[in-house]
Structure formats: structure tokens, C-alpha cells
């Protein structure tokens, strides 16, 4: 189980990485583009481009910024106690909000299996029946110790800004394993990309 710790030794995200085509994002934008006002929950950091992009659509964008909110101490992800006790504190809404789109990006790669089960149970009540949830699963053997920032460049294009940090083993969740852990969700589509990521689009059961 890996956990964000401290920003002290982090370098800036690598902005030289090229943008890549994201069929998962394209699917999300098809959902967003249906004309209805929708609620979007973004677990990522507040990025100017993403806010600008969503501003073209009638929506309410909730930025949870779990990358920033998870406990930090000394600059790397390391073995740590479970995150799940923090979930209610990190995502507290005044009212019973429900979302049409949930952008989890790559954060589940940094949860242990028990945290993923609890994460699934935790977000299920916030998820509308026809909502789409986007997760990027690392398929390479190793992954950066820090989750990336995903910058939306176009409806089908993402720019992944990875911190220049050490690597750790990736959990390499298969779709079947992920769905075993996230029992409240079912697979909608998945896309295996050449850049070592598999985009999982999930729906609530």
C-alpha cells in the first residue's frame, strides 16, 4: 500500500511528455456532451486547462484534489496505514450529491485492495445510475511513486504530468480483479493503451 508523503523532495511534473489519445476520455465527453447539465467529480488537482475545458459545458465541477489532500510527509509514497478512514473527511458534501461523471484518474493504483473495496463502497452512493467513472490503471511492472496529474488537452487527448520521482511496483490490476474489488461497479468499456495504461470506464451496478 503506497501513500503520498510530502512534497518537499518533489520536482515539478514533467511537462515534456507528449499528450496521448484517450478513448476513455472521449467516451466521457460523449456523456458530457448530451446537452443536459451534469455533475462532475474530479479527484485530481485543480488544473487550469481542465477547468477551462469543462467550462464549455453546462456542468458543475467538483474538484476533490485527493492528490493534495492525502497525508504527506517526506516526499515519496511508502508503506503506510490505510487511506480509507480519511475518505469521509476528504469528500464531504453538505447535501447528498450525485454525479454523472467521476474522474478517478490513476489514484486507485496507489490504494491497497482493502482501500479500493472501501473506496468503491464509499463513492457508490454518490454515483448516478447512468454515471461513467474513469480510472487509469497502470499495466507496466513499475509506476511512479506519485500519482500523475492528468491535463485535458482535447476531448480525446490527455497530457499526463508525472512527477520525476522514484518508482515502485505497480499493482497491475486486471479488469476482473478490479471488478472483484469494486463490487458496486461493472465494466462499461476498457481501452488498453500503448503507454502502459489501461483506461477503465465503469458504471454502477
Amino acid at each position: 500500500m503506497f501513500k503520498v508523503q510530502g512534497a518537499a523532495h518533489l520536482s515539478a511534473p514533467d511537462s515534456d511528455q507528449p499528450a496521448y489519445r484517450s478513448p476513455g476520455l472521449q467516451l466521457i465527453f460523449k456523456r458530457i456532451n448530451n446537452g443536459d447539465k451534469i455533475n462532475i467529480l474530479d479527484f485530481g488537482s485543480p488544473l487550469a486547462n481542465n477547468v477551462e475545458f469543462f467550462s464549455s459545458y453546462p456542468c458543475r465541477l467538483y474538484i476533490a484534489d485527493w492528490l493534495q489532500s492525502l497525508p504527506l510527509s517526506d516526499g515519496c509514497w511508502a508503506e503506510s496505514p490505510a487511506f480509507s478512514p480519511l475518505f469521509p473527511e476528504l469528500l464531504s458534501f453538505d447535501t447528498k450529491e450525485q454525479f454523472d461523471v467521476i474522474l478517478g484518474w490513476d489514484i486507485i493504483n496507489y490504494f491497497d485492495e482493502d482501500d479500493i473495496r472501501r473506496f468503491s463502497r464509499f463513492i457508490a452512493p454518490y454515483t448516478k445510475p447512468d454515471a461513467l467513472c474513469f480510472f487509469s490503471v497502470i499495466t507496466q511492472k513499475n509506476m511512479a511513486m506519485q500519482p500523475a496529474k492528468y491535463r485535458i488537452m482535447a476531448e480525446d487527448s490527455l497530457h499526463c504530468e508525472q512527477y520525476d520521482c522514484d518508482e515502485c511496483p505497480s499493482p497491475r490490476f486486471t479488469q476482473s480483479r478490479l471488478l472483484e474489488l469494486m463490487k458496486e461497479f461493472q465494466a462499461h468499456r476498457s481501452f488498453l493503451l500503448q503507454n502502459g495504461r489501461q483506461e477503465q470506464i465503469l458504471r454502477i451496478r
Binding site: F54, S56, Y57, P58, C59, R60, L61, I63, S157
Partner: peptide, 29 residues
């Protein structure tokens, strides 16, 4: 650092379409 929501549906005569890529045809500016 921002945690919260941004309401994207506040009507205004000053609002202009977001200058974007051209691949961003959201109709509800």
C-alpha cells in the same frame, strides 16, 4: 489549492466561449 465546486452554468452577457482547441464543441457555453 482548491477544493469545492465550480458552477459552470452562470448565465452572463459577458461570457464568451472558452478559447479552446476547436475540438471542444460544447453547446452550453
Amino acid at each position: 489549492k482548491f477544493k469545492g465546486s465550480i458552477e459552470m452554468s452562470v448565465a452572463s452577457s459577458n461570457a464568451k466561449p472558452a478559447a479552446a482547441t476547436g475540438t471542444n464543441p460544447g453547446s452550453g457555453h
